[in-house]
Amino acid sequence: MATRVLLVEDEPLIAMMLEDFLDVLDHAHVGTADSVATALPLIEEGGIDCAILDVNLRGGEKSWPIADALAARDIPFVFATGGGDEGIADQHRERPRLGKPFTMDGVGKALEQLAA
């Protein structure tokens, strides 16, 4: 069975690339959110096995509330980031990272790590 993945990414071209990667890697894309406000209802709906979260969203918004909601439901996630800790809150500091720029191999390894 394919892993059902939520993407949180505010750049449409990057989101489309990640959706293509998921398809090639035989994972199910269950939704893409570009903000906290669009991600939280998707999490509430359920049906998510794991998530890839862009740390920095449009307008200076951070994905911390999304991370908190996923953690509260024991849904594993990876932070997508081009930098280091970027001020990641202590409760999420140990979460895995997916470095930018994305590669299909990197995304595949990140999802394997979440499934382990």
Rank of each mutant, 00 (worst) to 15 (best):
D34N: 15
I48C: 11
H29R: 06
R93G: 01
A39Q: 06
L70C: 05
D68H: 07
A80C: 14
A69C: 11
W64R: 01
G83Q: 12
V30T: 14
A71C: 01
W64E: 07
T81C: 10
I48G: 12
I48P: 12
I52R: 01
A67N: 04
C50N: 03
D85Q: 12
W64Y: 15
L42K: 14
D49H: 13
R95Y: 04
G59F: 05
R73E: 10
R95S: 13
A69G: 07
P76V: 03
F77T: 02
S63V: 15
G31T: 11
H92T: 02
T32F: 14
A80K: 02
L40W: 05
G46N: 10
I66R: 00
H29Y: 09
C50S: 15
A37S: 14
I66S: 02
T38V: 01
A69P: 09
A51P: 08
A80S: 15
D68T: 14
Q91D: 13
E44A: 15
E44D: 15
P65C: 10
L70P: 04
G87D: 10
D49F: 02
A71N: 02
G84K: 07
A51Y: 11
V30C: 14
P76M: 08
V30Q: 11
G31Y: 13
A80E: 09
G87L: 09
H29S: 10
A89G: 04
H92N: 09
A72S: 14
K62E: 13
T32P: 13
L40S: 10
R93S: 15
L40V: 10
A80D: 06
L57T: 02
R95L: 03
L53V: 05
A37V: 07
H92A: 05
E44M: 01
A72E: 15
A33I: 08
S35I: 07
A72H: 10
V78A: 15
A39V: 06
P65N: 08
T81D: 09
D74G: 04
S35V: 08
I75S: 08
G84R: 09
P76F: 09
E45S: 14
A80P: 02
E94A: 15
N56F: 07
G47T: 13
E86L: 11
N56Y: 07
F79Q: 04
P65F: 04
I66Q: 01
D85T: 09
G59Y: 06
R93K: 15
A80W: 03
E94G: 12
A37N: 06
L40Q: 05
L57V: 03
G84H: 12
C50W: 00
L57D: 04
Q91M: 11
K62V: 12
T81Y: 11
A33Y: 05
E44V: 14
A28G: 09
V36M: 08
E44Q: 14
V55E: 00
E45I: 07
H92E: 07
I75P: 10
L40P: 07
A39I: 09
L42N: 05
C50D: 10
H92K: 04
S63N: 02
A51K: 10
G46E: 08
R58S: 14
D54E: 14
G60C: 12
A71Y: 00
E44C: 01
P41T: 04
P65V: 03
P76C: 11
